[in-house]
Write a protein that binds this DNA or RNA. Structure first.
Lengths: 167, 167
DNA sequence: AATATACGTCAGCATTGTTGACATATATCG
DNA sequence: CGATATATGTCAACAATGCTGACGTATATT
């Protein structure tokens, strides 16, 4: 009838400690991950939301507004504000969908591409270093856990196995 | 003199693809990670910033304001706003530091503890599921990579190896 | 022809970050 | 002891980015 004790001999406590470490690692990693882009954006008069839009438009050229909304999980009004600025300032170009002419397909301009590379430079370097130091096996474990954290299968599907063609 | 081609035979492209998948996994994981707490907070009239304060005060009882600022990496004015609300609403209690009486040591009240558990319930369940599905080896890799992503050694030091006492 | 969908827009509000300035209590140093 | 540094708090203004609600237009589908 005694409550679970918080000692290292208690497996329930160990488990909670492990889970909380995960929570915190995610917090710290994300905090550090956005620090450098945020500083760059600040100097350019933009914010984190602009970065996300630039990133995913660069990643999925000719994507639709709906698809972008589904990725970002924000309202169209929130997206509209930053997207409008990026279009007006010449970072993103909109073209009517060839099949469905209601769509506005999004793509980066040269200027947008330059900005995208500048913004993700630190983030890519950060992953390059972490991956290199941890080793391929650890990277595989990292991916497994990260995918397990996601809510939707459709998001997991975005990460098809990397193939180096050596078959 | 040809530029690097974006084909699956090109190792540079493969590498960039791998790094970008890392970037995106972090984005999606974080997005999903905060969705449920955000919804709860919204109903309680709080925001994400309140969650972070409640979480870390719960994690490090009797921590100082400075230590909390160092974790959150925000200004004291930003912290002050949410911390003040949490103290006024009875979630957090402040006591003068016994050694250094300039300090205001922070700890959760019963009410604060309840809220903390409610807020992290989904996050802990999320990690429990991801860890279980991925396996212990993957978890180890996950931790290695996550720690590699951090900027500061002092943050890495927060994650001492888990010890199950079986030595 | 009616209805649904894709997208845009205006307006207002809340949260959360910032900078800058200033105040108080307490600790430390010379 | 007196000067200085540190820990914390506070007021004010501003910017970015979420949200809800309402309404409008163009195009596709039924």
């Amino acid at each position: 009838m005694t409550p679970p004790a918080k000692t290292s001999a208690n497996p329930l406590f160990l488990r909670d400690e492990e889970l909380r470490q995960g929570i915190e690692m995610l917090f710290y990693a994300y905090r550090d991950f956005i620090a450098e882009p945020d500083a760059i954006l600040r100097r350019s008069g933009f914010g984190r939301a602009h970065h996300r839009v630039i990133y995913f438009v660069g990643r999925y050229p000719d994507t639709t507004v709906s698809a972008l909304l589904d990725i970002l999980q924000i309202t169209k009004q929130s997206l509209s504000r930053v997207l409008g600025q990026l279009v007006r300032d010449g970072y993103i170009q909109q073209v009517k969908g060839p099949q469905d002419r209601r769509q506005r397909l999004l793509r980066l301009t040269e200027k947008g591409r330059d900005m995208e590379l500048k913004l993700t430079e630190d983030q890519r370097a950060r992953f390059a270093r972490a991956y290199r130091d941890a080793g391929v096996e650890a990277v595989d474990g990292f991916r497994k856990v990260m995918l397990g954290l996601l809510t939707r299968d459709e998001d997991r599907d975005r990460f098809k196995r990397l193939d180096n063609g050596s078959r």
